[in-house]
Design a protein around this nucleic acid. Structure first.
Length: 830
RNA sequence: GCCCUUGUAGCCCAAUUGGUAGAGGCAGCGGACUUAAAAUCCGUCGAGUGUGGGUUCGAGCCCCACCGAGGGCACCA
């Protein structure tokens, strides 16, 4: 007998150290741009990383899941583009730089190096040749070039408006970055300021953003589509022009209920709109000013609270109903929003609760024009909004709501006093920021020429080297203090001029990074359209749902603009989207302030990369949150050790007892082979439907079956055992690459198992020749029969009725009804 | 307040889409190994699917109501 070597132990640290350099050497995940490469192309994209520090548990989950998708496609023989880059502009770097008296680049690029090393150790199948950072001048040069393309097409413009201001970040914010009245980033209460700012004209694309969701249906999570739909907020209605006494131009309102025009008893203008100031009569001026002051002081949070009493002030002017000639008083109020519709409304208190609340507060008349059969709103103070018959409405009387809407629009259009229209809740994207660490807006302001784009040859407009206190937020951009940088000659006329001192929202950077991956080193253009055509659109995008109406909406907008420019042949950048959940602890989001952080590095040190990845994937459906208290990385590690020992046994087969032969061994071998191929089949279909946790469960099953076979009749040298273990290694490689690679080597193969090729199940080994048929009496299982797959209905019924247990249950009487579903089920009703 | 999703062993989760409720894991229990413990290995217990109705030969799955959880929207005219 051969002396058994001391048994090798599963040691993830040894494996990590052994295989990482090997993979670095062979770089198996480099995408090939070669147009003659005939493999199918797959672009698998993870939302790129913000370099806030080292990777954390959230990264570990998102990238583990994305990596399963990418590695699966590698195994399927695709030419996979699976890149990574860094979204490296942004506020945290700037704040760190102020605290550390540095330039933000120092902190940023240190963190990027740290994250890159961690990604490598975490064994994500990235193409490392394509990395870049949005804060590199080689990148933001093209961010600026794209901005100028938008500018030239009238899609980037400046306007003065009341904007969201974050007093903590000391900068303006886009609407998308204000969540329930608070800054999306820091949580401070957002206030309003009147400022001139840069915007992207995303509203021009509202309808297309809505329409093109049809092709995302079923491939994007439904809730993301719903959120975008709500955000865009399309509503159909009409513009109605109200003449104003003493003003040449009428004032236009938007309404979804032109049918209720006869019920308009007053008129309301947003208090903070310029129109209110214009229309206020001299004797109401001081009351108006006082009110406007109050409104300005109110935060959005106060404004948004639903049960807040209505406030307002009369302007001492009157508007004229275009259909009736009736004069109605004009009020200023803050329940009408300056930047939705036209900032003015006709108030129909009988059929709109907000108007009714206002009418009640100021004792204004309520006139019912739709008889819905409900109680009179003038008495109940409950507005009626349903369908009914029009009353008190002259030409509309007797019509239904829909008929009246159509008719009212006809009347208005005939009179030249209005028209049918569609209004959107979506506002233009405010893109300028009063901060340093972003892409400078490549515009020069000249007293003579006005806004002048920086000529393409002068791009990039590089950030001047500022640091520490120079970056302190002052309400204007720190760039304004960089005098040498700011003062330039006008590119057009040569006169003294100044650079625009704002930088772009970092969401501009991330709106096109996925194009850059297709030709990351192109020095002559933002991206090479030919390469983009080959790789895009993205086959699978993976990232968090928190970007549902930020990054994802902006990226869709960018793609449509670039399509219109003629650079693309598709309208939607991301064919399919998967939202992973969050990693939480004890039911709550991890946060430093709560002190419930789980440290990724510590988890990896304790359990190994593979066990952490496996835990992430096995915890449940990909889109569900993972409560780290509910899962067991130790259990994952135990499983990995179990699988790994299978390969160890096969490797050491020579020192073990030879496989048994004979009938027992043959039957056991066939059983194991069936289990192997059943697993291949089931794991494949689980993967195809993104049920990664189920795939793992199947691998565990096969692991258990293989262990039994080795310890039982087959031993470790039987070909059926080798087949099982080899397939386990390949399938496991999607989730536990180190363990799988080590197994693969022990089975006598060269690296890398990641490209071994996805196995195909042998159909003949999956097909069962018999199946257990359940016989129910009145729905209760009374017998089980082993029957051939192809059994006929008649034969099955006879067989079932002949069963003694069935006969006993039926008491000898024939069933009144028999439901026969061959081959699996018989249900007899006595 | 409105809309969407969801509820299966103590816990995390499966269930071929209307046909035997259980695949996998965690925890528990028993055993093996150990001087002992940990680790490891083997074995094992475990719910009738949130509640109440309905459709059906048959419901975890479909319909209605209610309860709980999560999410979105919330003065958008």
């Amino acid at each position: 007998m051969v002396e058994a070597k001391e048994a090798e132990q599963f040691d993830f640290k040894v494996m990590q150290e052994k295989w990482l350099p090997v993979w670095e050497e062979i770089a198996p995940f480099t995408a090939r741009d070669d147009p003659n490469d005939t493999r199918p192309r797959s672009y698998v994209l993870d939302m790129f990383s913000y370099p806030s520090g080292d990777l954390h548990m959230g990264h570990a989950e998102a990238f583990a899941l994305g990596d399963v998708v990418a590695r699966y496609r590698f195994q399927q023989g695709h030419n996979v583009l699976h890149p990574i880059a860094w979204d490296s502009f942004g506020l945290p770097a700037e704040n760190a730089a102020i605290a550390r008296d540095e330039n933000p680049a120092t902190w940023t690029y240190q963190n990027i190096d740290t994250q890159a090393e961690s990604f490598k150790r975490y064994a994500i199948s990235f193409d490392w040749t394509r990395r870049f950072n949005t804060s590199d001048p080689e990148y933001y040069r093209w961010t600026q070039a794209l901005f100028l393309q938008f500018y030239e097409r009238g899609l980037a413009y400046r306007k003065a408006s009341s904007v969201n201001w974050c007093p903590s970040c000391q900068t303006v914010l886009a609407n998308e970055q204000v969540v329930a009245g608070e800054c999306e980033r820091c949580g401070a209460t957002v206030t309003k300021r009147e400022l001139t700012q840069w915007y992207f004209k995303i509203t021009d694309y509202a309808q297309r953003l809505l329409d093109d969701m049809a092709e995302l249906q079923g491939r994007w999570p439904e809730r993301v589509l719903t959120m975008q739909r709500n955000w865009i907020g399309r509503s159909e209605g009409a513009f109605v022009d109200f003449a104003i006494e003493g003003r040449a131009e009428p004032v236009r309102v938007f309404t979804t209920r032109p049918d209720t025009l006869y019920g308009a008893t007053f008129f309301v203008i947003a208090a903070d709109s310029p129109l209110a100031r214009e229309l206020v009569s001299p004797d109401q001026l001081s009351a108006f000013e006082k009110y406007l002051d109050e409104v300005r002081r109110a935060t959005d949070i106060e404004r948004l609270s639903a049960d807040r009493p209505k406030t307002g002030v009369p302007l001492g002017r009157f508007a004229v109903n275009p259909l009736t000639g009736e004069q109605i008083p004009i009020w200023a109020a803050d329940y009408v929003l300056a930047d939705y519709g036209t900032g003015a409304i006709m108030a129909v208190p009988a059929h709109d609760q907000r108007d009714l609340d206002f009418a009640k507060a100021f004792n204004l008349p309520v006139r019912k024009v739709v008889e819905t059969g409900e109680d009179d709103p003038a008495i109940t103070f409950v507005a009626t909004t349903g369908d009914g018959v029009l009353v008190n409405s002259d030409a509309l009387n007797g019509l239904s709501k829909d008929q009246a809407i159509t008719k009212a629009i006809e009347l208005l259009e005939a009179a030249g006093r209005g028209e049918k229209t569609i209004n959107y809740r979506l506002r233009d994207w405010l893109l300028s920021r009063q901060r340093y660490w972003g892409a400078p807006i490549p515009i020069i302001h000249c007293a003579v020429c006005g806004e002048v784009p920086v000529p393409e040859v002068d791009l990039p407009v590089r950030l001047p080297e500022l640091k520490g206190d120079q970056l302190k937020p002052k309400g204007i951009s720190p760039l304004a203090g960089a005098t040498e940088w700011v003062n330039v000659k006008c590119p057009k006329c040569g006169a003294a001029a100044k650079r625009d001192t704002d930088t772009m929202d970092t969401f501009v950077d991330s709106s096109w990074y996925y194009f850059r991956y297709c030709s990351p080193h192109d020095a002559s253009q933002a991206f090479d359209p030919a390469q983009v055509r080959r790789w895009m659109p993205v086959a699978q995008y993976v990232g968090g749902v928190e970007h549902a109406i930020l990054h994802l909406l902006y990226s869709r907008f960018f793609t449509k603009v670039l399509f219109d420019i003629g650079l693309l042949e598709f309208n939607e950048p991301f064919t399919a989207l998967m939202n992973q959940g969050q990693v939480i602890l004890n039911g709550a989001a991890m946060s430093k302030s709560k002190g419930n952080m789980v440290d990724l590095g510590q988890q990896i040190d304790e359990f190994g990369v593979d066990a952490v990845r496996l835990t992430m994937v096995f915890a449940g459906p990909a889109e569900d949150d993972i409560d780290w208290a509910d899962v067991s990385p130790a259990g994952s590690k135990k499983f990995l050790a179990r699988v790994w020992r299978l390969a160890l046994d096969v490797q050491n087969a020579g020192t073990h007892a030879a496989a048994q032969t004979g009938a027992d061994g043959d039957a056991a071998a066939l059983e194991l082979r069936k289990a192997t191929h059943r697993t291949i089949h089931d794991a494949t279909s689980a993967l195809d439907s993104f049920r990664f946790n189920v795939m793992i469960a199947r691998l565990m099953e096969l692991t258990n079956a293989t262990r039994k076979a080795i310890d039982g009749p087959l031993g470790s040298s039987h070909p059926a055992v080798r087949e099982a273990v080899e397939n386990l290694a390949i399938m496991l490689s999607l989730v536990a690459p180190y363990t799988a690679e080590d197994m693969w080597a022990r089975l006598g193969h060269q690296p890398t198992v990641a490209l071994a090729g996805w196995p195909v199940a042998d159909a003949t080994l999956i097909a069962e020749d018999s199946v257990t048929c359940v016989v129910q009496i009145a729905g209760k299982v009374r017998a089980r029969l082993e029957v051939p797959l192809e059994i006929t209905q008649d034969a099955l019924e006879k067989l079932a009725l002949a069963d003694p247990a069935v006969q006993a249950a039926l008491g000898g009487k024939p069933p009144s009804r028999a439901v026969i579903k061959p081959p699996k089920l018989v249900n007899l009703v006595p």
